[in-house]
Amino acid sequence: MFITPAFAQAAAGGDTNSMLMSLLPFALIFVIMYFLILRPQQKKVKDHAEMVKNVRRGDTIVTSGGLVGKVTKVVDDEQVEFELAEGVRVRQLRTMISGVRTKGEPAKEKADKSEAKDDSTAS
């Protein structure tokens, strides 16, 4: 009585062009996200894994907690032992290392200060 019958209209013969056009923005968003977000993140993870794998005795490391020390022993594939101060040794997971400086690499702050001193004496 109160309900009127609804009649569906017939489909327009399978227009695939409109379906392709409706899916195109989603495909473009995925491609943009891949090149701007996913690919650089994968490269960063790969570089970090390579850096951590190449840690050896004598390297200066910086942990993700902010501790700086010199590697005294590579325990195994997962751990390194480093010295924070004279006689203070700590074991750390390799994955928690955020930076590695090799034996011969100069400190950036010292290099910047010496360059500034050289420039001021040259004038």
Rank of each mutant, 00 (worst) to 15 (best):
P106K: 07
E50V: 08
E105D: 10
A111S: 09
V55I: 15
A49R: 06
T72C: 00
F26I: 14
K117R: 04
K103W: 15
L38W: 11
K117V: 01
D77N: 15
A49G: 04
A27C: 14
E81W: 04
M33L: 12
F30G: 13
L36R: 08
L93N: 13
H48T: 15
F26D: 12
D77T: 06
P25A: 01
Q92K: 10
V100H: 00
G87Y: 07
K70A: 09
A27G: 14
K117W: 02
G69D: 05
P5M: 08
F7G: 10
F30S: 15
V90N: 11
A49H: 05
I97P: 04
V71Y: 00
I61E: 02
V45N: 09
K110L: 02
P40I: 01
K103P: 01
Q79R: 10
A6P: 03
I37Y: 11
K53P: 00
L38Q: 09
T60E: 05
K46L: 04
P5H: 09
D77S: 06
F35L: 05
G58L: 15
G58A: 12
F7R: 13
D119G: 11
Q9R: 14
S64P: 10
V62R: 00
M33S: 10
M21W: 12
G99W: 07
R57A: 07
L23Q: 13
D59C: 13
D76C: 01
A10D: 15
L38E: 07
R89H: 11
I97M: 03
K110E: 04
S64H: 11
F30M: 12
D77K: 09
F82V: 10
Y34S: 02
K43V: 05
P5Q: 12
M19V: 15
E83H: 04
F82I: 05
S22P: 03
L23N: 14
T63K: 03
F7H: 11
Q9Y: 13
I97Q: 01
H48S: 15
E105S: 08
T72P: 05
I37M: 10
K70P: 02
I32T: 15
Q9L: 14
Q41K: 06
E78Y: 12
E86A: 14
R56P: 07
L23E: 10
V55K: 02
A10N: 14
T16S: 11
K73P: 08
V71N: 00
V100K: 03
K113D: 06
N17P: 05
K70W: 06
E83V: 03
V80E: 01
S18M: 12
F35N: 07
Q42R: 11
Q79L: 07
V71E: 00
S64K: 06
V31S: 03
A8G: 13
T16D: 12
N54E: 08
I97K: 00
L84Y: 07
A6F: 12
E83D: 10
R57D: 11
V62S: 01
G13I: 09
G104S: 01
A12R: 11
G104N: 01
L38F: 11
